[in-house]
């Protein structure tokens, strides 16, 4: 469960103080698929990065499974990021010098709560996302959709309970977008919490709950169920 309490994020710029997140109070239950929608610059990515322990809020609390995320030291916070959270970004972020299998195994470099053999697990995950025949391929040999699927597989490597996705379909065509969204739905059905940030309102139908953001303020929206869920 993720809860935020009066979370604020402000940036000091030459033209003055910018409030990226204004007293956000949200609560995400285990197993939910939450979509955070909003226009560019509305603060949705900032919110996601604060929830994921990537950037420190200016004030307020973020509770992850009862633990105050930002009260932790760097080691503990990193441990939480590595074991409890899985990130998928708009850019796939695969290291070009590692093959797909090695890229998926990358999170085990920093922590591994999974007991099974990392190579076996990575292979299974890649098979699950339809890349079973691309284990030895390098990122430059994969298509945009394949790269994204590999990134999703990597986010699951340490078997996190929460997947945080920042515009994961931002640069994909409609078909691939649906493919990726289906994948997130399947992940969600496995019991994992999915929190996704997007500017695409059309994706709202995939989520169980939609949060809308504008000028740093979060508000709840009614979700519309997709036919496919």
């Amino acid at each position: 469960m993720i809860e935020t309490n009066e979370v604020m994020k402000t940036y000091e710029t030459l033209s003055g103080r910018i409030t990226a997140l204004d007293q956000a109070n949200i609560s995400i239950k285990d197993g939910e698929f939450v979509l955070i929608v909003g226009r560019s610059g509305s603060g949705k990515s900032t919110l996601l990065s604060i929830l994921g322990g990537l950037t420190r809020p200016s004030s307020g609390k973020v509770m992850l499974n009862g633990k105050d995320l930002w009260a932790m030291n760097d080691e503990d916070l990193s441990e939480v990021r590595g074991s409890e959270l899985g990130f998928v970004f708009q850019f796939p972020g695969l290291l070009p010098t590692l093959n797909t299998l090695e890229n998926v195994m990358l999170p085990t470099m920093f922590c591994s709560k999974v007991e099974e053999d990392p190579s076996e697990r990575a292979t299974i995950l890649l098979q699950t996302v339809g890349l079973g025949d691309k284990l030895d391929s390098f990122p430059n040999q994969l298509s945009g959709g394949e790269l994204k699927r590999a990134a999703i597989a990597r986010s699951l490597m340490n078997n996190p309970s929460i997947i945080l996705a920042d515009e994961p379909t931002g640069d994909l065509d409609v078909n691939t977008e649906k493919e990726i969204m289906d994948m997130f739905c399947r992940i969600n059905k496995l019991g994992k919490t999915v929190v996704m940030v997007t500017h695409n309102q059309d994706l709202a139908c995939f989520a169980s709950r939609v949060l809308s953001m504008e000028r740093g303020i979060v508000s709840e929206e009614e979700g519309q169920k997709c036919e496919r869920i």
Partner: peptide
């Protein structure tokens, strides 16, 4: 920078 951010998101600490 992106690679650094990515590693941190995967659980790399400052020390790592």
């Amino acid at each position: 920078r992106r690679e650094i951010g990515l590693m941190r998101s995967m659980g790399a600490s400052q020390k790592d």
